[in-house]
Computed example of a mutant assay.
Amino acid sequence: MSTSSSSSSSAAFRLICLLHSVVALTSGALMMFYVKEAYAFAHGIETAPKLLGSTPHDQLLIRTSGSFSGLLLFAIGFLLFMISSVKDREFQSLFAGGCTALHVFVALWRFWFERRVEDLAWDWLRQTIGDFLMGFSWVFFLVYSWREKYD
């Protein structure tokens, strides 16, 4: 195997990790600091107030939950940024396979559960397609790296 093929595979891994990192960091920051705007962007202006709760107690719980979810997503983005510099091909393939599985499971969760929530029912298809597209970027890397490995 030549060093140029391993370096191009490594560059593809780095690029995909950085793109996913930017998405996770941005989404996490929006969820932590701009909850209303993030809900309006993700679910629409009509649905956002329904998702933010009707009583002050519900609103506090939902904001707290959203902030922790945003913090978790921000941490995942930071972790992806750090992982993007890993050069080990075996780890890259394992990580890409795990990320693909994670995106598929999230899409399945949206299909089975989120579409049944009345306020989210119209939005699940768009988000499920997004999950599959994010997972497909990892599949693209796996195919690209396998092609290089077996050429």
Rank of each mutant, 00 (worst) to 15 (best):
Y150G: 00
I76F: 11
V117G: 03
S65F: 15
V106F: 11
F68N: 13
I62Y: 05
A121V: 03
A107S: 09
F13V: 02
A11N: 07
F141T: 01
R147Y: 13
K149Q: 08
F140E: 00
A29Y: 15
E118S: 12
F33M: 07
S10D: 03
D88F: 00
S27W: 12
A96N: 04
Y39L: 13
L108N: 01
Q92V: 00
R115Q: 11
K149C: 03
K87C: 02
R147M: 08
L133Y: 04
L80N: 02
L18H: 07
L73R: 10
T128M: 15
S21C: 10
A38K: 08
H20Q: 14
S137H: 05
F91S: 00
L133P: 02
L125I: 14
T100E: 05
G44L: 08
E148M: 10
L19I: 14
A42D: 06
E114D: 10
A121Q: 12
T26Q: 12
I62W: 06
A11E: 06
R89S: 02
R126W: 13
D88Y: 00
W138P: 01
L120E: 06
R115H: 05
P56A: 03
I83A: 10
E37D: 10
T47F: 01
E46T: 14
V86P: 00
T64K: 12
W122L: 13
L25A: 12
S8L: 09
Y34H: 11
W138M: 11
S137A: 14
V139F: 02
F140Y: 12
S9P: 00
Y34D: 07
A12D: 01
D119V: 12
H43G: 07
M31V: 04
L80H: 05
V106W: 07
R116Y: 10
G66R: 14
S5H: 11
A42R: 07
F136A: 15
Y39W: 09
L73Y: 08
S145R: 02
S84V: 02
R147K: 13
S2K: 09
W124N: 06
S54A: 07
Q59L: 02
F95S: 04
S21H: 08
R110Y: 11
G28H: 11
V86R: 04
V22E: 08
Q92A: 01
T64E: 15
A121P: 02
H43C: 14
S84Q: 07
G70R: 09
Y39G: 01
L125R: 12
W124V: 03
W138Q: 06
E46G: 03
T26P: 04
